[in-house]
Each structure stands twice: as C-alpha cells, then as structure tokens.
Amino acid sequence: MREAGRRTLGGVPDPDVPLPPGHRARPLTVHDLPAVTALVAAQERHDLGHVLVEEADLAADWSRPSFDPSLRTIGVEPLAAPGTLVAYGELGHAERGDLAVHPDHRGSGLGTWLAGWLERTARAGGASVVGTPVPAGSPADRLLEHLGWHVRWRSWVLALPAHAQVPARTLPPGHAVRAARDDELAACWQVVEDAFLEWSRRERQPLEDWAAGVVGRPGFEPWHLRVATDQDDQVVGVAVLTVGGDDGRTVFVAQLAVRAEHRGRGLAQALLADAFAEGRRHGHDRAELSTDSRTGALGLYERLGMVVTSDWVHRAVRIPT
C-alpha cells in the first residue's frame, strides 16, 4: 500500500506533490475498468445530462500494445473508503489525456491535482504540450481555464434525429460500399491514418494499436468496419462503427475517412448513409458521430440533418522544457 498523500508517476512516489488530505493514489489496472467507467459516467451524467462513455472503448484503448496502465494511469481513493474510485487520470497518447472527478468529490482539490499529474506525466514522456477534452462551460472547463489551460480546438457530438436519414449518394461508376474483408485491415488503417494526420499533430499510430480499438474492441462484429472501394476494388474510404449507448441502441461513427484524391465525389456521405442504415438494420435506431474544429466538417454534418447534442473544448497546457 502506498503512503497516503503521495502521487505516483510510473509507479514511483513523488513526495513533493501531495494529494489533498484524506486521499491516496495508485496506478490502475484493467480490473479497474468498470470503476473507471462508472466514475466517468457519473461526471458526464452530471455535466451533460446523458452518458457517452462505453467500457468497451476504455477496454480497447487500454489493450493497445503501446499502452501500459501502470505507467500512464492514476486512481484516487479516500482513505476512509479504500477501493472506492473518486478520481482518475490517464495519459492515453503523448499529448492527450483524460481526467475525471466524481461530482460528489469536487471542490476538494482533486481536479487541480489531476491536472498537475497529467502535465508532469506528459513531461516525463517528452511532450511539449498536453490536453484533455471537457464539456464546454463545465466545472472542469472552468477549472482548467483558471489554471491557465488554453483552448486548442472545439469538438461536437452530433445525432441524427429519429426516423431521419442521411440522403443517399450515387456512387461513381465501379465504386461500392460494403463491409471490409479480413485481408483489408491494413488498407483501412492506412486510409484512416493518412486522412487524420493531415490535421492531427501526433505520430502515426501503429497498425496494432489502431486494430486494438477497432476489431479488438469488445463487441466488434464484421459489419462495424465499412469501406468504400474504387473500380479496382481498392479501399479508398473507411467508416469505423461502434454500438452501445444507455439502451444499447446507438450506432456511433467513431472514424470516417476518405483518401484525399477521392474526395468531393460523395463517398463520405455514402459511407454515412450506409453506416446509419446498417445500424438500423441491426436494431440500432439512434445514430451519432463526433467532429472537431480542425476538420471543418461540422457544417457538412449539419446540412445532412444532424444536430449537435454536446459541445466540448480541448484545453491544453504548454509544458516548459
């Protein structure tokens, strides 16, 4: 058992950064995933009025070969209630983390402590900046603003209203939209990574890490990975789907990408229409996706009839060298 009031970084206590009194911290393991999910859900329910987090998404992220939760997570428990997770932090990627404090435990200094933990953990990994997404105007947003964290970009979750449909698009001659084959996994990864790295400041994600979050995600079924192919049956567009939601009836487009030279031909809209239609065919009558200000795609989705259901900001802090 670690000494109360000490932070851990990679399993090493840091006596110079004490926790708020009455708490202790420890790295997390995969056995803590249900507790982390419940904690994040409580925060989202309080701040948004609904829950977005899925344990399957966390499990997929933590199963990436490059991710070691013993080095890149922290959980906080009250000394009076050991085993009760009331706050957690995670450095999921070099410059991006996630933080959560149970609403009943806000105001105790845990949010400030976690923000410092995230900054120091990112610094130890060589990052020059680190950020985290928070609902716009939420207590976490106000706290990070007070701590001097700036807004790097905005993001939105959008939903397709019940019974609405994304208008179908006629595909170019010889093109098709279908489920991906097993032998097309690397081609799908290449399309997604090439597209996302046009605007995202990060290293290329290894195929094994990407696959862990797609075909390795708990509950994955073959119809969840959709592709658009050209006249040579080569993958030129990809849609990655997940399913879940409070009632298990939501299909979420987690990733959508089209090769640069094939854009402007309706393939993204065709993939969306296909994704939502497939979701409904499998009993998922709600459809959602997210986008952010770096992509410039918000207007496109709104013109297709989707509506914003939550507004987020990615707040970040520059790390002194």
Rank of each mutant, 00 (worst) to 15 (best):
R263P: 02
A273Q: 12
E278C: 14
V251G: 03
Q269K: 13
A239R: 01
T250R: 11
Q255S: 13
Q255D: 15
H282D: 05
G248H: 08
Q255N: 15
V243R: 01
V238R: 00
A257H: 08
A277P: 00
Q234N: 15
A277Q: 08
A260Q: 15
G264M: 09
G248I: 09
G244Y: 07
E278L: 14
F252N: 12
G264N: 10
Q234F: 10
A277D: 09
R281S: 14
H282Q: 07
L241R: 04
A268Y: 11
V251W: 09
Q269N: 10
V240P: 04
G266M: 04
A239F: 01
A268N: 08
G279Q: 07
G245A: 05
V243W: 02
A273V: 10
A270H: 06
L256K: 05
V240D: 03
H282C: 08
F276R: 00
D274Y: 10
G279D: 00
L267Y: 02
R281V: 11
G245L: 04
D246Y: 15
A275D: 01
V240Y: 09
A277S: 09
Q269F: 09
V240Q: 02
G279M: 06
A260H: 13
V236G: 00
F276C: 07
R280T: 10
T242I: 06
V251R: 01
A239S: 05
Q234G: 11
Q269T: 14
A239T: 05
V258F: 02
R281D: 12
F252Y: 15
V258M: 01
R259A: 11
R263F: 08
Q234L: 13
V236W: 00
G279P: 06
R263L: 06
R259S: 11
A257L: 04
D247C: 15
G244D: 03
G264T: 07
F252G: 11
A268W: 01
L271Q: 06
A273R: 11
F252K: 10
V253W: 07
A254F: 14
R281Y: 12
Q255R: 15
H262R: 12
A257V: 03
G245V: 00
T250H: 11
R263D: 12
G279R: 04
G248V: 05
Q255W: 07
R265K: 09
T250I: 14
A260C: 12
V240M: 06
D274F: 09
T242V: 10
E278N: 13
V253C: 12
A239K: 00
G248D: 06
A254G: 14
L241V: 08
V253F: 07
Q255Y: 14
F276D: 01
H282A: 11
V236Y: 00
A270P: 06
T250D: 12
T250F: 11
R280C: 03
A254D: 15
L267M: 05
G248Y: 02
A270K: 03
R280Q: 08
R259D: 10
V235D: 01
H262L: 08
R281M: 12
H262F: 09
D247A: 15
D274I: 07
L241Y: 01
A270F: 05
R281A: 15
